[in-house]
Design a binder for these strands. Sequence first.
DNA 1: GCCAACGTTGGC
DNA 2: GCCAACGTTGGC
Length: 147
Amino acid sequence: MKSEPDAYSIKDLEREEQTLWDGIRNYQARNFMRSMKVGDQAFFYHSNTKPPGIVGLMEIIETNLIDPFQFDKSSKYFDNKSKRDNPRWDCVKTKYICEFKNMITLKELSETYTSEELTLVRKGNRLSIMPINQNIALELLKKFNQN
DNA sequence: GCCAACGTTGGC
DNA sequence: GCCAACGTTGGC
């Protein structure tokens, strides 16, 4: 799950302990989020920063929550086509697990995995939420985060 | 700042 | 339904 650290960083999550992952306005990303289950873990990725990469881990603690900002006219995430009785955008709540001692940079990831193994490193990929193969995820933790 | 790779919008 | 124009994301 990507976030620009200027907007919301792993440090923010550490301080707040949990957060609503709101503001997703892309159907593909939303659908991936809908497939999450309570207890799943997710990588926290810092995008649009130097260097970009995976900075920590979180756990999904609630699913199927309505994103309140779609009804908030003052929010940049307001969507006037979304109806109260049929909300278009939903989100999950995540909980801080840890920040990695050493972040795993996008460069390291793209040197280690192909775009088939890891959607994240596919050229031009803009999705802010995407699935990761469990074996790859475990291997990745082992390889880059021995401490 | 540039630009690739999308997604969205709207005219037809 | 098609597609051109435009907007956004995000690495570099």
